[in-house]
Amino acid sequence: MVESYTVVVPCFNEAENIIPLFDRIRAQLTDASILFVDDGSSDKSLELIKELAEKDKRVFYLSFTRNFGLDAAFASGFKYCASDWIIQMDADLQSPPEEIPKLISKANEGYDIVFAKRLNRQDSFLKKAGSKVQHFLARTAFRINFPVGASTFRIVRRDVAHRVISRPTAYPYFLAECMRLGLRHSFIDYKHAPRHAGVSKFTFWKSLRATMKLFIGHSTVPLNFFALSLIISIPLLFWIPGSFTVPAILLLMLTGFWIQAGYIRRLVREQMFHRAFLVRESNLNIQAEDRLYDN
């Protein structure tokens, strides 16, 4: 049986990269579908994608009503992909499409998902350091089973990807969820490239939100810290007087309450009003629950 493939590409103001990316994907996968997810771009990204879709019937697109974020973009791609395999990659060409055959070859050895690990990562010091700290803390302090070094460049079976996003959570952290489900996984190494054009959408606050989502969504260690901080702090306020000690203890207590608030906020967002994404327009048949308009 011949396997089918869809390349899912989230785009947020990546107009300069759309055409080069498309050409290089097509050079590697002549028969694959390509699903672009326009994550609320304000440049000509969507216009260029629609032009490609008119010329190539294997090009599809989803256009969000606003910027919902990378996780939402990939989740929508998983939901509306009909191929046997999904290849995830960013639009900035830092993950060269020429490495796709390596992912496919490794996946055919019997894995559910294959992650690509970056060699000589071409990112800012802050971004690289943040990833290392996040991965280290996830596996040590928070006891989260985490594929260290894995990037958003990967290949995953469609039915497995559907299983991951079907978890009753607005934003499952994909890497941790894959490990929680016990997926058969492996890695390939690839040479990471500099960004082809445009500027990175990475910010410190986006990274911090992603880190908190990982820690709060897949570990109870922060809750244990909250309980411990109260157990320690309240007696110390009475037993150890001092101008320095009191502020330090109060800070410990406030940190514990802030962590607890993170868990409560997550539950409220998921149960009351949170939406993973909303589609303004697409050339796919979008379910009513994901459409802005009825028609």
Rank of each mutant, 00 (worst) to 15 (best):
D38G: 09
D39S: 04
D43S: 07
K44M: 08
K44G: 11
S45H: 01
L46F: 03
L46H: 03
L46Y: 01
I49M: 07
E51H: 04
R58Q: 14
R58W: 01
Y61E: 07
Y61N: 09
F64R: 07
T65W: 00
N67M: 11
F68I: 10
A72F: 02
A72L: 03
A72H: 05
A73F: 01
F74C: 07
A75H: 11
G77P: 05
A82S: 14
S83L: 02
D84W: 00
I86G: 09
I87Q: 06
Q88V: 11
L93N: 05
Q94R: 14
Q94C: 15
S95G: 13
E99S: 15
I100A: 11
I100W: 02
K102I: 05
K102F: 04
L103Y: 01
I104C: 06
S105F: 02
K106A: 12
A107T: 11
N108E: 12
Y111I: 08
D112W: 00
V114L: 03
F115N: 04
K117S: 13
R118T: 07
L119N: 10
N120L: 07
Q122D: 11
Q122N: 11
F125V: 15
K127Y: 08
K127R: 13
K128D: 13
K132V: 12
L137H: 03
T140R: 08
F142M: 12
N145C: 08
N145R: 13
F146H: 13
G149W: 00
A150P: 08
S151K: 00
R154L: 15
I155E: 01
R157T: 12
R158E: 06
D159F: 02
V160R: 07
A161F: 01
S166L: 04
S166K: 09
T169Q: 14
T169S: 12
